[in-house]
Structure formats: C-alpha cells, structure tokens
C-alpha cells in the first residue's frame, strides 16, 4: 500500500469526528444523536487502523482495539435502540426535548 500518507487518514477521521460530534450535540432526534455517535466511533476506528498500519513494531494492537470498539459499539447500539423504542412506544416522540418529565 503506497501513495496515501498517514495524515490523509487522520484528516478524514478528524472530519468524521467533528461531523459526528456536531450531529450529536445539535440534533434533538434520538436516532440522529445515535447516528452522530456512531460516526464518532467510526472516526476512532479509522484512526486506530491507520495508526496501526503505519506504526513500526507492535502494529496489530490498534487493529485488535478497533475490533473491540466495533463489537462493543454494536452492543451499545442494541441497548440504546431498545431504550429509544421503549420511549417512543410510551410517548410517541423521538425528540429528546419533548421527553421532559424530569426537570428542576
């Protein structure tokens, strides 16, 4: 693999992370927030895999870490979607600003 320097990967990952963070902070739809978080996790994985590819020496650790992140993110999304579905069934809204019984 030649031609693509490490910094390109990092720029893409940085952009993905920024887009994800922006989405997660600005959107009020719970599904969109979850999607923003998934984008941030993808940025992390891209970072890890890119570093791992260009790292001298103990290179596999980053790839293995990325696999762990993927697996855990799937579990997290499953739990999260279950909670969101529960709220939608009970209240009929996915908008987190309208889920507001608790305040003070």
């Amino acid at each position: 693999m030649t031609g693509v320097p490490l910094v390109d990967f990092l720029v893409v990952a940085g952009l993905l992370f920024a887009i994800g963070l922006w989405t997660a902070l600005r959107r009020t739809n719970a599904i969109m927030i979850l999607m923003g978080i998934e984008l941030m996790l993808n940025a992390v994985n891209l970072n890890l895999v890119a570093f791992s590819r260009y790292m001298p020496g103990d290179a596999m650790r980053g790839m293995v870490f990325a696999l762990f992140v993927l697996t855990v993110a799937a579990a997290e999304a499953a739990v999260g979607l279950a909670i969101i579905i529960l709220v939608v069934r009970r209240r009929g809204v996915v908008d987190v600003n309208k889920v507001n019984l608790l305040r003070g």
């Binding site: 994800g20 997660a24 719970a30 927030i33 979850l34 978080i37 941030m40 996790l41 992390v44 997290e76 739990v79 999260g80 909670i83 969101i84 529960l86 709220v87 009970r90 209240r91 987190v96 889920v99 507001n100 019984l101 608790l102």
Partner: peptide
C-alpha cells in the same frame, strides 16, 4: 424510561 434514554445518549457520547 427517561432516565435511561438521557443516561444512554450522554454516556455513549462521552465514551466516543
């Protein structure tokens, strides 16, 4: 329910 969804969205963001 509301406690769960709020903790989840904030916590998942912090993890990322």
């Amino acid at each position: 329910n509301e406690a769960g969804i709020k903790y989840f969205l904030n916590g998942a963001l912090a993890s990322a």
